[in-house]
Design a protein around this nucleic acid. Sequence first.
RNA 1: GCCCUGGUAGUGUAGCGGCCUAUCAUGAAGCCCUGUCGAGGCUUCGACUCGGAUUCGAAUUCCGACCAGGGCGCCA
Length: 606
Amino acid sequence: MRRTNTCGDLRAEDLGKKVCLQGWVRFSRDHGGVAFIDLADRYGITQIVFDPEDLPEGTDIARISDTMRTFTRESVVSIDGVVRKRVEGTEDGRNPTGEIEVLITDAELLNRSAAPPFELGDQKEGVLPNEDVRMKYRYLDLRRTEMIQAMEFRSRLVHLARQYLDQNGFLEIETPILGRSTPEGARDYVVPSRVHPGMFYALPQSPQQFKQMLMVASMDRYYQVARCFRDEDSRKDRQPEFTQLDLEMSFVDMEDLQEMMEGMVSHIWKGIYGKDLQTPFPHIAYRDAMERFGSDKPDMRYGLEFVKLTDVVRDAPYKIFQNILAEGGIVAGMNLKADIAGDKVGRNDVDRYINYAKKVGLGGLTWMRCVNGQLESNIVKYFTPEILENIKTAMGVEEGDLLFIVAGPWKATYESAGFLRKKIAEDLGIVPEDEFQFFWMDQCPMFEIDPVSGKYDAFHHPFVLPQNDLDDEYVGGACFDLCLNGNELGSGSLRIHNVDMQKAVFRKLGMDDERIERSFGYFVEMLSYGAPPHGGIAIGIDRLCAILLGKDTIREVIAFPKNKRAMSLLDGSPSKIDDDKLEELQIISLAGDFDLGDFDEIEEIE
RNA sequence: GCCCUGGUAGUGUAGCGGCCUAUCAUGAAGCCCUGUCGAGGCUUCGACUCGGAUUCGAAUUCCGACCAGGGCGCCA
């Protein structure tokens, strides 16, 4: 018989219906006479009951019973039966189908399952196997309710994004997966060309250049759910291949782009949670984000802000600070207020944080505690009473407060202090769990100067429109990041549409004209054919889904992710390929079991 | 390239120099059971990642490798 219903949709209204359900045997309970099966599919679980005393005349009870004996856990089976009410008092309120059950009248084993390597049923926390086991049997892992829900959530989210962009006149256009390797940025994944031996395509790190070309091509509004590839080491929020919602618009300013994104996120929000999301999102300038929170993607859902103390302690006869200030460094403090931290952070904890501070790159960590109205610590003797008073005022110190003070070069010190802030907040448990705070981080610089080489690097990328003259001491870039709860979801910018400006930026980044022509010639030329003012943004779908679902890693929202070492335990990729394939591509591998014997042979052929 | 954490039956764990012929749960196999729902009861099966070293004795200590995860670098 053909399936009439899924395992999620029968209710009390369906009483008496003849149905056919097909699904997986999640649990079975044989009571000797009556027996139960929890039949599961993507939509839910329905209880099947084998009740020999209640079966209609002429039913082949032995046949059903024998068939059911072949049903191992996770086997796929087909069940014919009649919907009936459960026995009074045995309804299951946790299950939407819990009022009814299907009285089995016929059964068929569609395909037997071997004993699954781990438990697939919904159960208490902490009994999942190691991730490598889940990855090896991902097709079973995905059978779990939690994974089904993650896939449903992601599908819904992407659908809503498409719906919104479509309503706003965007064209969904696919850009090439096989492209040209670019010298800048992340390492490319590379694909050899058979037709052109010795030549390679590269998989895109992002559709950046193609989407700009689409603007020049007058497409005006483009988007794509774009797979991107980066051959860099992974993290819990970084995979070798990941998905970006990528879009580009012509004749817009930064506000237009941000409003479009706010509209899209709100649309998603409404569609998923049924609630309105507060827009516009707040903004924070890059410099403020760094100086107040020690991060360019700060989690602002909790306090522990830094206060600049550089001027307050400038005249303190404390050698460590004096040396740092002489080199142009900064001093900043964080006040752990008595009510949230004062009592919970004892002397041992302070030592622990000093060690942690050193681990994350700070030279050290100065602390002071306000006891009986006075700042106390091992180093207060190096500060005059007046300076101590000024610190108290600047930091708003009250009785019992604990101060942590960091010092050093601007960027490195704030970055490290940001790690410390996060660690303290997590230790104190003051990070809100179910609060989602979107915001824009903007007013970024166009360039960063590498402290080692002294070379200019693009802060975002070299296609960002500079906000002022490139010869000015500070050059701003028309770029911004969308952040959520301490994570970067994506970044956007207005792009350069003028040939000369684009060349000038490349030169500022240390490329000579020959290099610009070789690497970006086609791109620069494109700008000379009436490139409109344009800009765009790309946001990470994996990260957005993971954060909204409260997952620790984006692997939980990707059907078939790679592991930490960029391998798939499921299909065993990457893998060696056959020698004849290599030969066809005219490629010799120097890795692994390469041996000189083979090499001699090849030389002889030549 | 570097740092940190971990590796015990199919799965999750306890044990952390001799009480280990290694705990418990789950699972698998078999039997019993007519209202369960992660059913229950009984029986059985099944493991110390690998290689060195220390020691009378190593799952346990040390060194190295491998594997997994987290982080730094890297990710314009």
